[in-house]
Simulated assay, not measured.
Amino acid sequence: MSKKTVGLIFIVIGFLFAIVSLIADYIGIGSYPGINSAQIAGIVGGILTALIGFFLFRLTKKKKE
């Protein structure tokens, strides 16, 4: 797999993880109402994963024709 493909996968997984962590209480997987430390860690981890994916996606060299 190319770095560009891996970057896109990281972006998608990161954003999905952050969104699921954010809405955990609404979908029934939260431990108690309100945003707790596990949800904050999931949101931050998801955003960091997406940022790593973004940098992998953008830093790939374009091939010259």
Score class of each variant (00 low, 15 high):
Ile11Cys: 12
Gly53Cys: 04
Phe15His: 02
Lys61Gly: 13
Arg58Met: 09
Phe17Thr: 04
Ile43Met: 10
Phe10Cys: 12
Phe15Asp: 07
Lys64Thr: 11
Gln39Tyr: 07
Arg58Leu: 06
Ser2Leu: 10
Ile43Asp: 06
Asp25Tyr: 04
Gly14Ala: 08
Ile13Leu: 15
Leu56Lys: 00
Leu51Thr: 13
Ala41Ser: 14
Phe55Lys: 05
Glu65His: 10
Tyr26Asn: 15
Ala38Pro: 04
Met1Pro: 04
Gly53Pro: 02
Ile13Thr: 09
Leu8Tyr: 01
Phe55Arg: 04
Leu8Ile: 10
Ile11Asn: 00
Thr5Glu: 05
Ser31Lys: 13
Ser37Lys: 13
Ile13Tyr: 03
Ile43Gly: 03
Thr49Lys: 02
Gly7Cys: 05
Ile11Phe: 08
Met1Leu: 08
Gly28Trp: 00
Phe15Met: 10
Lys3Leu: 14
Arg58Trp: 12
Ile9Cys: 03
Pro33Lys: 03
Gly30Tyr: 02
Ile29Gln: 05
Leu22Lys: 12
Gly34Tyr: 13
Lys61Asn: 15
Val20Phe: 13
Ser37Asp: 12
Ile27Phe: 04
Ala18Val: 01
Gln39Ile: 01
Ile35Pro: 04
Gly28Ser: 13
Val6Phe: 05
Lys4Phe: 11
Phe55His: 10
Ala50Asn: 08
Phe17Ala: 11
Gly7Lys: 01
Phe10Gly: 02
Ala24Asn: 11
Glu65Asn: 10
Ala41Asn: 11
Gly34Pro: 00
Ile40Ala: 11
Gly34Asn: 15
Lys4Leu: 14
Leu48Ser: 13
Ile9Lys: 01
Lys64Cys: 03
Pro33Gly: 02
Glu65Ser: 10
Ser2Asp: 14
Ile40Leu: 07
Asn36Gly: 13
Val20His: 01
Ile11Asp: 01
Ser2Val: 08
Val12His: 05
Ile19His: 00
Phe54Asn: 13
Ala50Asp: 14
Gly45Lys: 03
Glu65Asp: 13
Ile43Asn: 03
Ile35Asn: 12
Leu16Cys: 15
Ile23His: 06
Ile23Gln: 06
Ala50Lys: 04
Phe57Ile: 09
Ala18Asp: 03
Ile11Pro: 04
Ile52Gly: 11
Ala24Met: 03
Phe55Met: 08
Lys62Arg: 12
Val44Phe: 09
Thr5Asn: 12
Gly7Phe: 10
Phe55Gly: 05
Tyr32Glu: 08
Ile19Met: 12
Ser31Asn: 11
